[in-house]
Structure formats: C-alpha cells, structure tokens
C-alpha cells in the first residue's frame, strides 16, 4: 500500500507539473492566445483570453485525482475513537499505557479510583515494601489487591 501510494503521488505530481507547464507554453503562442469568443458571459477583466486544448484540461484533472488518491492512501492509520477499542488497547498493551509527558498516556485514567493516592496509607505501604524487599523482591506485595 505504501509503495502504491508513493507511486500515485509521484505520477500525479509529474502529470500536474507537465499540465501546468503545457498550459503556460500554450498561452505564449501568439496564434492561440487570441480571445476565443466574443460572446463570453464573463466580464472582460476576468476572461483569461486563452483557448486551452482539451488534452491539457484532462491531464490536469486526472493528475489532481491521482494526487488526491495518493495523499489519502499514504496518510497514517486512523486512531481509535471508540471507547471500548481505546480502553481495550490500554489493558492489552504496555506500550499504550506508557506515560510520555505529564497528562499524556498513563493507562486507565480510572485506575486512580482503586489506587486512591489521596488516601495513600503510607505506613502500610512502607511495611509492605520492606517485607517485599526482604523476601527477595519478586512478584508483588502480598495481601494487596491485584
């Protein structure tokens, strides 16, 4: 998919620049730059006074369509905006839980309701930690909820 989108983008850019350059060159030709129609409904100031061949117009349109498709295909994957998908990702993967900066990441935002840092039982924590360390520091603190 990545290669296809890059190819689309490159082809689109080449065709677009080709079309633009052709249009410019065409406008410089004295024979074709004469005003095509006298009965134009445009104001005379707004009338570009160029009689562009159909193939240049088609080339421009096709290259723009190609570019549109290429840009959309080469964009990054969409982020989940469904609650359950986002939450499931947090539960499943350590990467999704990582704290990148203050207020960004950090896993389940509602875990605070079970850790309750405002009611931290510091003496109990110290005791539990010391016991855990004395036992060789493996696993988790016993007697605490998982």
């Amino acid at each position: 998919m990545a290669i296809a989108s890059i190819a689309l983008n490159v082809i689109g850019v080449i065709f677009l620049s080709h079309a633009v350059y052709s249009a410019y060159e065409h406008s410089l030709l004295p024979s074709t730059s004469a005003s095509p129609s006298s009965g134009s409904y445009l104001l005379s100031v707004l009338d570009p006074k160029v009689n562009l061949p159909v193939d240049i117009t088609i080339e421009t349109l096709v290259s723009v369509v190609l570019l549109c498709a290429g840009v959309v295909l080469s964009s990054a994957n969409l982020k989940p905006i469904q609650w359950n998908v986002w939450a499931g990702n947090l539960e499943r993967s350590k990467d999704a839980r990582a704290t990148k900066e203050v207020g960004v990441g950090g896993g389940n935002p509602y875990a605070a309701l079970e850790e309750r840092s405002g009611f931290l039982d510091i003496r109990g924590e110290m005791k539990g930690f010391a016991e855990w360390k004395n036992k060789g520091g493996e696993g988790r603190i016993e007697g605490k909820k998982a």
Binding site: G106, F129, K133, G137, R140, I141
Partner: peptide, 17 residues
C-alpha cells in the same frame, strides 16, 4: 515512556524500588 513520570503503585513494587 519516562519512568520518572509514573507514580509508585502498590501493584508494582519493583517500579517503586
């Protein structure tokens, strides 16, 4: 991830250590 930004929790004593 920056480990300094993660608060020590009961469930993860090795992080506290």
């Amino acid at each position: 991830s920056d480990p300094l930004l993660e608060a020590p929790t009961q469930t993860n004593p090795s992080h506290t250590l």
